[in-house]
Amino acid sequence: MKREELEQVVEQALTFLAQILPGSISLYFPLLSVALTWAVKRSLAWEEEIFAWQVWPNPEWIRTKSDMFILDFFQSKPELNSHFRAEIDNRDLDALRSAFSRLYPIMGLEDPFLCALFYPELEKSDLAALLSTFDTRVEEAKADIKSIPERPRLLEGLRAFAEEAISLGIEAMSQKEIQKLILDVLKRDINNKDV
């Protein structure tokens, strides 16, 4: 597997996204990540999974998770345990439930789109920033996706990108390595345009 060839494939995908989603640079990284993740996993419902994140923060089934499950979620992850120490100690389930509906898809279910959308906050472990911007950014992403006039073309392009990346052996890379590769190319692309 040659890194340069993979970078080229990512560059082509970025050019494609710039045509189809010109004003939504913030979506390029999540869309490419999610397309690759589900393709590498050979997901049978690839198309549905690409847009599955759109139910958050409030899918019906999440509102009914048990209190004990929610407490366990916050207690079992060290970064959450320290950030929510007071709420856990006081059994403040209203506060925990509200945070749970935003953090669970990312830190519990590892939704690849949301993980990529909040990549900077996760890298810095900045939970406060993640929580305070979650609703707005997810709503913006939903609106951007909804406004694409050619959704089938977007899916076609993402699929072509994923298939090419797989043919170059991307399956051998971890999710983190894949994300880093996409980010490197994206940053370079943005810097070149700035210059």
């Binding site: 997901s43 004990m68 979620f73 898809p105 519990g108 279910l109 590892e110």
Partner: peptide
């Protein structure tokens, strides 16, 4: 029916294990 529910079900298994 979906990857999210599948993963949530796995998390439930782990939760029961800890319980």
């Amino acid at each position: 029916p979906s990857e999210a529910v599948f993963r949530d079900n796995d998390n439930q298994i782990v939760f029961c294990y800890r319980g």
